[in-house]
Nucleic acid binder design. Structure first.
Lengths: 255, 255
DNA sequence: CCTATTGCACGTTTGTGCACGTTTACGTAC
DNA sequence: GTACGTAAACGTGCACAAACGTGCAATAGG
């Protein structure tokens, strides 16, 4: 379907380079299997790319050459944390599943890390999430329409909710604004709440990925809480007592 | 299937180029079989096209010239050309208008160049167009939903068409695949044709931005032509006779 | 007539997989 | 901590196939 039997040599090198820029690393054995060539050829490709200074050759594969990342270190740090959380969340994703992916920077990171060749269908209200997977092998992308909210980076209006309700997904990744054990997930906006509740109810399981700043202790918001979170992904250094409270509330916590 | 019994050399090169732009690559052996000529002839064609900078010759076939290689002068030229054409098209945009912007690389360039603080509403089926204006001052963005086509970079299915028909726009920028004076605009795909026709009919005026390679001379496609183009933007060095023919067809030509 | 285009034959270049010996990473025993 | 054994990854040489460029003759169309 998506993997033509015939892949041109130079084209393969370019695809490797793109994967490298997206994932930060590539593993020779995986590439060999994916492109259906021997590892020797992959090694030759990586050697050529490294000779051009386009990647850094390491034992087992290659790493991104330290050149392009135009991101501030502060931003990179946070991205690194998000990547770690997203990696944990990825273990919950199975082949052939339909995924609701809400707008949000963490979810954008997650989308970029989704594995190729797993027949995943990504349903999203966020253009940047859609672009993160569009065109990659093994992905179908369904965009939910509507008026885009600049503060959110996606569509959340009633039109969007209606489109979401027409879809049945396996897994749902709502963007997390704030979360606590007693009241669940909150948002800053009523419409956002309605949308998140809709995609959660249209999905089998729901995975909330919460960076530390989202795990608040006391309730200060006015919107109604969102229910139906089945999985929570938090940083590995999260306070044990906090984790225990979530587990007591019936949520599977991953760290 | 779609292989004519007799194909002129020049015509064949054009078809190869179109396939290249659609798929991103072509394989010499496949082309030879499809056009029923020897691989030698195909190689000669690809060599000629590469000499014109229209593709990148590689072992086994050819790749699209417009890709990541940051050194490509050709790519910069093309972008520069698109920016120039887009700048011309911008003069047709007025304050407070609603704009339909179709998927396509030229339209992405156009979207980035739209002026701030003009109360523009951008309606699009392409995530990258949406991202180009989302969050900038003076913009509302409405995203049309649906299943995204990776080759197009946007949604074009029936769901998308239905959403488009609910909207009334002032100006429409359909992505141009190929255009000629007699038959109007074409696409490679029937669904794409339906979508473009829908957004054109939902708009007051339609502006087609055509890079030189889109201005073909002879009809070789099978999809129905699209009608309703009111403005055409072309490069300033376009052949005068060609321009005259479009003007005779009732199209306002800008260059 | 001339020109352009094509297919074929030839030698050359490029990419690939396999076999072999070497190096690296990692776990285990001392 | 050091020494050691194993398995994986690595580089190299080699043979083979596929793709390449070139020269040349045959053919079609103006």
């Amino acid at each position: 379907m998506n993997a033509p039997d015939t892949t041109l040599p130079r084209e393969r090198q370019q695809l490797i380079l793109e994967r490298l820029q997206r994932d930060g690393k590539v593993i020779a054995a995986d590439l060999a299997q994916e492109f259906r060539v021997s590892e020797d050829s992959i090694r030759r490709d990586l050697r050529d790319l490294a000779a051009q200074g386009l990647c850094r050759r390491v034992y087992g594969g290659a790493l991104l050459a330290v050149n392009i990342p135009p991101l501030g270190e502060r931003h990179a740090e946070r991205t690194e944390l998000k990547r770690a959380l997203a990696r944990t969340a990825l273990s919950l994703v199975g082949t052939g599943q339909i995924l609701f992916i809400d707008a949000g920077s963490t979810n954008t990171v997650l989308a970029k890390m989704l594995p190729d060749h797993h027949d995943l269908t990504v349903v999203t209200n966020a253009p940047d999430v859609a672009l993160a997977v569009l065109g990659r092998p093994g992905f179908d992308v369904i965009m939910l329409g509507g008026k885009l909210d600049p503060a959110i980076g996606g569509a959340i209006g009633s039109r969007t909710v209606r489109q979401a309700q027409d879809i049945r997904a396996d897994l749902c990744f709502p963007g997390v604004c704030a979360i606590d054990p007693q009241r669940g997930l909150w948002t800053y906006d009523e419409e956002e709440t309605v949308f998140k509740q809709a995609i959660i109810e249209a999905s089998g399981e729901t995975v909330a990925i919460a960076t530390p700043d989202k795990l608040v202790a006391s309730a200060t918001h006015h919107t109604a809480p969102i229910t139906g979170i089945s999985h929570l992904v938090v940083a590995s250094d999260t306070d044990a007592a906090v984790v225990a409270r979530y587990r007591a509330a019936g949520v599977t916590v991953h760290m």
